[in-house]
């Protein structure tokens, strides 16, 4: 995947870091969210460390998306607080990134302008926009498609544009809501590798929500398993497998089974 011979090491580089105390990026304290009488998130307490890829796994409909919407500040909290870098979380600061489950490319903009969109909203100087967009287009391999419109792209290319747009803004925290749920398995593997590669290169903190256990074990530094609604944290699984990870590696399978056992609510 990556040309340099020393790149098998990033995994090892991140492993020792796991043992040293890490800076807290997101602090979730007593987070409770209910819609009327429907309790969705029940007193969640956890942290997201700076630079890690945290996967939130839970059964469909357990409140994962609600959690992300609380984290961005799109939804008001019922109780508790979410702090990003010690401050109340809000999309209004504009330092978040969000990759949606559905297509979120802007149909009237070319791939290039889509990737530049977040930076333009932030009123970034044009020369910085140009430099960053061109770099990220190369990283995700979208250069040949930069003048196309989203309708001319396949589903996986479309999702890569959305991913590139978020990385181009160099977000303080990147939130991903089942971004690869609609893609077939081969494209998913490819984009998962790509996400990991860019994430390591940019040092981005990522909170990745999924109901796909295999995807979580493949990607995560740490996995939080949520219960069925009302969601509480059932288990924390730290994944220290070296990368690239293999789905048929016995220790991979062992972790996958552990998470699967934890997620079972029946």
């Amino acid at each position: 995947m990556t040309p340099e011979p020393q790149t098998p090491d990033p995994a090892k580089r991140s492993n020792p870091a796991a043992k040293t105390p890490k800076a807290v990026k997101v602090l979730v304290r007593n987070l409770t969210k209910s819609f009327g009488s429907l309790l969705v998130l029940d007193n969640l307490n956890f942290v997201v460390y700076a630079g890690e890829l945290l996967c939130l796994v839970g059964p469909t409909g357990c409140g994962k998306t609600t959690f992300l919407n609380c984290l961005t500040g799109f939804l008001p909290l019922t109780a508790g607080e979410i702090l990003v870098d010690g401050q109340k979380a809000s999309f209004k600061k504009g330092d978040l990134g969000f990759v949606f489950q559905e297509s979120s490319t802007i149909p009237w903009l070319t791939v290039y302008d889509n990737v530049a969109f977040g930076l333009k909203i932030k009123k970034t100087p044009p020369e910085v926009i140009k430099e960053r967009v061109e770099r990220i287009l190369t990283v995700v391999g979208l250069n040949p498609f930069k003048d196309l419109y989203p309708r001319e792209l396949s589903a996986s290319l479309d999702q890569r544009v959305a991913l590139a747009r978020e990385f181009a803004t160099q977000p303080n925290l990147l939130l991903m809501d089942e971004p690869y749920g609609q893609l077939d398995i081969k494209l998913r593997y490819y984009l998962e590798d790509e996400l990991r590669r860019i994430q390591e290169r940019e040092g981005t903190t990522v909170a990745f929500v999924t109901h796909n256990i295999e995807e979580a074990v493949y990607l995560a530094d740490r996995i939080l398993v949520l219960t069925q609604k009302p969601a509480t944290i059932k288990e924390e699984v730290i994944v220290t497998l070296p990368r690239p990870r293999r789905f048929d590696d016995p220790s991979f399978v062992a972790i996958r089974d552990q998470v699967t056992a934890a997620i079972q609510w029946w």
Partner: peptide, 12 residues
């Protein structure tokens, strides 16, 4: 609405 959120998440 997803596109509106894309703009807002970046501080629009």
């Amino acid at each position: 609405p997803v596109l509106v959120r894309v703009a807002k998440i970046h501080g629009a």
